[in-house]
Every structure is written in C-alpha cells, then in structure tokens.
Simulated scan of single mutants.
Amino acid sequence: MTIYSLYVFDRHCTCVYYHDWHRTKRPKPAVKDALLPAVSRAVSHQVSAIEGTPTPLSTFSSPRNTLISSSGVVVAVNEEAEYTKPPSSGGTQAQPPVQGSALAFDEEAKLACIIIRDENFTSYRTSTYKMHLYETPTLYKFVLLSDPKVEGPSARFALRQMYSGPFLEYVVRNPLVPMDSRERGIDNEYFRASVDRLMKSQAFFN
C-alpha cells in the first residue's frame, strides 16, 4: 500500500496546495496564470531566464509503476462510467480515455475538483487507486489519492490530523498566509514539512 498525491481545495474549489510522493509521472506544469502562486513549486508555471520556457523547479523520480502508465494522470471518472479500451498492446484492461502523455496540472486539479464537487462521498475506489475526501467546517477539502487497498477510515483520520495539526498551526493561525483570498496558495516550508512527516508516519505509507 502507498499514497500518491494530496490536493487541498478552498471553498471556491480552487487548488491551494499540492504534494506528491509515489507518482510515477508528475503532471506537466500549469500554464501561465492558470494556477495560484505558491501551490507547489513542482507544478507551478516557471519561466527559464535563458530560454523563456516553462520549467518546474524541482525534479521527480520514482521506481514505482503505480499509476496509469499511459498518462500519469491520477484523477478519475466514476467506476460505473463508460471506459474506452486502448488500442491492443498485449493487455485487455479498460482505461479511462486520455489525450497526450499527461495533463497540465491546472487541468488535472480541475478534474479532481469536478469529482469532489459533483459527488457525495468520503472515499471511492477504482481499479488503479482510491480517492479519500475530508471536508473541514470552513469548506476546505483535503483530497488524498492512494493505492486502492488503503482503508478509508485510516486515510480520513490522517487527513483530519493534517487539518487539526499542521493546517491550523501553520496556515489558519499564520497571519502571513492569506486565507480565502483567491490570489495565492497556502504553501510554506513549515506546513509542507509537517505534511510530509505526517504522511510518512502513516502505516499505509510505503
């Protein structure tokens, strides 16, 4: 069992924080002005001073092959939704339709937001991964994507710990972090480090 990635959405369903661990393929950086600043350096739009091209500020690699290998995209449609089979390549497992090698991160975040906005659930499972949702009293939504075998109660408890611990301490009570401004994400080094420690301490983190 393992976890893949974490999104935090505000009450406007805008992605304000992102963190990943065992993704095999990071999404493409967001297009210019499509993502709030300070969500994550790994997926924010960055411009190279030399070439003038978008580049992420951090590298990423993983020996695991845990996500949809043809896309690296981890947001999904409901399991009951219609799937299309990919061209025959030795396997017969149906996959959600994909275009290109990966989505830009802002598009991926929008898909995740659509799922949690239109569905009433605390977690749901696909053959590839499981999505866990914890919503705070102030309508912030913590979305964790994990291995399908991760138990829902355990993941939700971890998300609740994240909210009552690092989120309240380093975000809500921090006067330097704009809350609900729709202008900036909530990323800061203390919150990110605390989230990383918390998730790595979970029994289902591998």
Rank of each mutant, 00 (worst) to 15 (best):
42 A>F: 04
21 W>A: 14
171 V>E: 04
50 I>M: 13
146 S>E: 06
73 V>N: 15
128 T>F: 14
204 F>N: 07
73 V>Y: 10
58 S>P: 00
3 I>E: 05
40 S>G: 03
7 Y>K: 06
88 S>K: 10
166 P>W: 01
42 A>G: 14
154 S>L: 15
50 I>E: 15
74 V>F: 09
67 L>I: 05
56 P>H: 06
183 E>Q: 13
139 L>P: 00
204 F>A: 06
31 V>N: 12
107 E>R: 03
14 T>N: 11
92 T>E: 13
102 A>W: 12
28 K>T: 05
83 Y>G: 02
23 R>D: 08
19 H>E: 15
24 T>R: 14
73 V>H: 12
70 S>T: 07
188 N>H: 03
39 V>A: 03
66 T>H: 10
51 E>Y: 09
149 K>C: 11
8 V>N: 03
111 L>P: 00
54 P>C: 09
18 Y>W: 10
56 P>A: 13
193 A>W: 04
180 D>F: 04
187 D>P: 00
195 V>G: 01
62 S>G: 08
10 D>G: 00
118 D>W: 00
102 A>Y: 10
103 L>R: 07
96 P>I: 08
63 P>C: 09
120 N>H: 05
202 Q>W: 01
21 W>K: 10
7 Y>G: 05
135 E>A: 12
191 F>L: 13
177 V>C: 09
123 S>Q: 05
139 L>S: 11
87 P>F: 07
103 L>S: 06
172 V>C: 09
118 D>R: 05
60 F>L: 13
82 E>K: 10
21 W>E: 14
105 F>E: 13
205 F>I: 02
120 N>A: 09
192 R>W: 02
53 T>Y: 08
116 I>Q: 07
95 Q>F: 06
36 L>S: 01
164 S>R: 10
133 L>P: 03
60 F>P: 02
9 F>I: 04
18 Y>I: 04
79 E>D: 05
188 N>Q: 09
158 A>V: 06
73 V>W: 10
137 P>M: 08
63 P>D: 15
180 D>E: 09
28 K>E: 15
204 F>G: 05
63 P>F: 03
147 D>Q: 02
153 P>W: 01
205 F>V: 00
110 K>M: 15
41 R>N: 08
87 P>S: 06
152 G>M: 13
158 A>D: 05
9 F>M: 11
24 T>S: 15
29 P>W: 04
41 R>C: 09
21 W>L: 14
140 Y>A: 06
121 F>T: 02
5 S>Y: 01
139 L>A: 09
135 E>P: 01
28 K>I: 09
189 E>V: 10
202 Q>E: 07
145 L>M: 11
202 Q>I: 00
199 M>C: 03
164 S>K: 10
201 S>K: 01
117 R>M: 12
122 T>D: 14
36 L>C: 02
48 S>Q: 10
138 T>R: 10
16 V>A: 03
34 A>W: 02
190 Y>C: 07
185 G>Q: 11
180 D>M: 07
120 N>Y: 01
142 F>Y: 04
98 V>D: 07
160 R>T: 03
17 Y>E: 05
52 G>Y: 06
162 M>R: 00
